[in-house]
Simulated assay, not measured.
Amino acid sequence: MKIILSPAKKMITDTDSIAPDGLPEFIDKTLEIQSWLNCKSKEELKTIWKCNEKIAELNFNRLQNMDIYHMLTPAVLSYEGIAFQYMAPSVFENSQFEYVQNHLRILSAFYGVLKPMDGVTPYRLEMQAKVEIGDVKNLYEYWHDMLYRSVI
Score class of each variant (00 low, 15 high):
M1S: 11
M1A: 06
M1I: 05
K2A: 05
K2F: 07
K2T: 13
I4R: 04
L5G: 13
L5S: 14
S6R: 15
S6V: 07
S6D: 01
A8F: 11
K9T: 14
K10I: 12
K10C: 02
I12N: 01
T13M: 06
T13N: 03
T13D: 00
D14R: 10
T15G: 00
T15M: 12
D16S: 15
S17Y: 06
I18R: 15
P20K: 14
D21R: 09
G22C: 13
G22A: 12
P24N: 03
E25A: 13
F26N: 09
I27F: 07
D28Q: 05
K29W: 01
L31E: 03
L31W: 00
Q34T: 03
S35G: 01
L37C: 04
N38D: 03
C39H: 02
K40H: 03
S41V: 04
E44T: 03
E44W: 09
W49H: 09
C51D: 04
N52W: 06
N52T: 13
I55F: 11
I55Q: 10
I55C: 06
A56H: 05
A56I: 10
A56G: 14
E57I: 04
E57Y: 11
E57H: 05
N61F: 08
N61R: 14
R62W: 00
L63M: 03
L63G: 01
L63W: 05
D67R: 10
Y69M: 09
Y69P: 00
H70E: 14
H70G: 04
M71G: 14
T73G: 01
L77Q: 11
L77C: 06
L77D: 01
S78E: 04
S78T: 14
G81M: 10
G81F: 08
I82A: 12
I82S: 03
I82E: 15
I82H: 07
I82K: 15
A83W: 09
F84R: 03
F84D: 09
Q85G: 02
Q85F: 04
Y86W: 02
Y86A: 08
Y86L: 11
M87S: 04
M87C: 08
P89N: 02
S90D: 12
F92I: 10
N94L: 13
S95C: 13
S95I: 15
E98S: 10
Q101D: 12
Q101K: 12
L104R: 07
I106P: 01
I106E: 09
S108R: 10
F110Q: 00
Y111C: 11
Y111K: 04
Y111G: 08
V113A: 14
V113G: 04
L114E: 05
L114S: 13
K115A: 09
M117D: 01
M117Y: 05
D118Q: 09
D118R: 07
G119A: 12
G119F: 13
V120Q: 02
T121S: 02
T121K: 13
Y123L: 05
R124Q: 02
L125E: 10
Q128Y: 05
A129T: 11
A129D: 12
K130T: 12
K130L: 10
V131R: 01
E132H: 02
E132R: 10
I133L: 07
I133R: 10
D135V: 00
V136I: 11
K137W: 05
N138W: 06
L139T: 06
Y140F: 14
E141V: 09
E141S: 14
Y142P: 01
W143F: 02
W143N: 03
Y148Q: 07
Y148M: 10
R149A: 10
S150C: 15
S150Y: 08
S150A: 15
V151M: 05
